[in-house]
Design a protein around this nucleic acid. Structure first.
Lengths: 327, 327
DNA sequence: GCTATGATTTGTAGCGCTACAATGCCTTCC
DNA sequence: GGAAGGCATTGTAGCGCTACAAATCATAGC
């Protein structure tokens, strides 16, 4: 910076102002500084700037996985929101709560302006760390509960709606598949809702099957096999993701099970694949892009000290009925 | 840091050493410092550390998209390598070369130790910036060409191998589908290889169809429709990704086209879906995890001043033959 | 007892930048 | 003509940490 200042015949402070607060510097001075900077190939060191100013325009986010499209629209929503507000988004992968803890430590180490995490399941060390350092945090994909701020939708209610849809389509022997392993605890919230809604219809809620979250498409065949072994009269399944539902559809093709006539299949997540398969998948659409946008907006409002109406935002969901659950 | 030092009854320098060079500090002192740090919720400010030491243990990467599994194994490979070496990986999404430029600016602003980019298609401003600041860069998913270092496989040769496989399975009227839009120029390398290999067999290489990279599964039906309009006698297609191939399989189901009897379909990328569908997809497996690992290893070797045998690493590929191209 | 040696710990200076206050300079207005 | 006010510019101090060298301590050998 000093070299640029000397070349332009001004003080270092004027160079700093030229980049940080251009309107403070007179037009001709600014142009002179920019010319010298360009000539010398000077790129401001944001690290030093952040350290001196104690502020950053970078937001940190963690993503459990990029294995499938689960977080695609969500991340796009975040990206759009940060772009609009002149911030940047850096992401770290965090498959497990231990990895999340490390990611949070690194992001806090980089002194990001705020954090967007996924889920409300964290390492105790993460929680106590976040309480001690005073950094704004949004937990997304959660509902009605958050350390600081939260964005999400009601997965219990979504489960109920899916069960009611299947009941309305004449199915009685309904199964719920959930994920386990990793940081998959959020799937377990669906179980009591499922059992309760089945009980209201006077039906047993015994068919709850869990599969490893690491299994992807392959989880479909595994879950279907296990469920058919438990209940040969199975009429419908609600899947934890569209990927598992797609895996079940593939397996049904191989086994000669007709969907939806023999078996109704409902997915979850409104991934692109759900509308491209045959039959098209009934699925629960979580308004993921809105969730990402809302998470970032909450964070930036908090960073900038603006008032926050709702600390916990419900972005809702849509039950998208398609062919895989019958007509 | 001062607070922690005081709490532990040591000097700030010892706290610094505890985190940066644990082996320099006596066991009991180290434990005392760590306890105080934990109690006070102290997280070392990497920003200040970078500034003082002029080095960082964070590597920055850009990813074109997380829409589908394309970069899943690749990112896992990078993650594994950085974990092994005690580095951290932060990612930024960069769909276009303009977004890549911004991402690179931000990551350089954060003074990451090195950068891993995807592809060799960049904004001129990105290239000149990278030349000015002296930061190690690996370009992945490229072959035989890189600014600094490169990792990838030979997509032209892979295209040739796919063509030869289809020829060996008795197909003559073969089409190549490629992507366009965004930063998809790397797909065009496949075209001359396709035409050349077809010409060697005395066949026309006219059936090259391009689809928008933003289209995902939906690109399958679009491409298939266009190709059938151009050549009703179409016998085989080579797709730019497994997602497009899956879209074509779905469309074939709807149109009553038997795969592989009426049409052979080859995918690209060895995504999980390729082995779960019926019929299973023949696909080109790019050893993506190895590519990620190798990219990070190259970078870290360069950062640490170790000798680099090959500036350009070829991680190879595997042609995985399955049912979709016939037996 | 005293020095040599190595292990551990501790000051000092400064990384590149920005907040803040202070300086200088030019108008404006009574 | 001189004080007041506004604007552009410039010193000063310090952000939180680490490189480096200096200092301290423990142990061993003569």
């Amino acid at each position: 910076m000093g070299d640029v200042a000397q070349a332009a015949g001004v003080s270092p402070m004027t160079v700093s102002n030229t980049f940080k607060y251009p309107q403070r510097v007179q037009e001709q001075t600014r142009l002179r500084v920019l010319a010298s900077a360009h000539e010398l190939g000077y790129v401001p060191n944001l690290v030093a700037g952040n350290l001196a100013a104690g502020e950053s325009r970078v937001i940190g986010g963690t993503i459990p996985s990029i294995r499938n499209s689960s977080f695609y629209k969500y991340v796009l929503g975040m990206q759009q929101a940060v772009n609009l507000q002149g911030y940047k988004l850096v992401l770290m992968l965090a498959d497990t709560i231990a990895q999340e803890r490390e990611a949070v430590e690194t992001l806090i180490g980089l002194r990001v302006a705020g954090l967007v995490l996924v889920g409300n399941e964290h390492d105790p060390a993460t929680v106590s760390l976040l309480r001690k350092v005073d950094v704004p945090v949004v937990e997304s994909w959660t509902h009605g509960d958050a350390m600081d701020m939260g964005v999400g939708y009601d997965t219990a209610e979504a489960t109920r709606r899916a069960v009611r849809l299947l009941l309305a389509r004449g199915r009685r022997r309904i199964a719920l598949i959930i994920h386990e392993g990793g940081a998959a605890r959020r799937f377990t919230e669906r179980v009591p809702a499922f059992r309760d809604e089945m009980a209201r219809a006077g039906l047993p809620g015994d068919l709850v099957q869990s599969v490893q979250i690491t299994d992807g498409f392959g989880a479909g065949p595994v879950a279907l096999g296990a469920l058919l072994a438990r209940a040969a009269d199975l009429e419908a399944v609600i899947c934890p993701t569209d990927v598992v539902a797609a895996g079940i559809l593939f397996e049904c093709q191989r086994r000669g099970i007709a969907v939806p006539d023999d078996l109704a299949v409902a997915g979850w997540g409104d991934y692109e694949v759900s509308s491209e398969m045959t039959p098209q998948l009934t699925t629960i659409g979580p308004n993921a892009a809105e969730m990402g946008t809302e998470a970032v907006d909450l964070l930036i409002r908090r960073v900038q000290g603006q008032p926050i109406r709702n600390r916990l935002v419900d972005t809702g969901f849509t039950l998208i009925e398609r062919a895989s659950t019958g007509g």
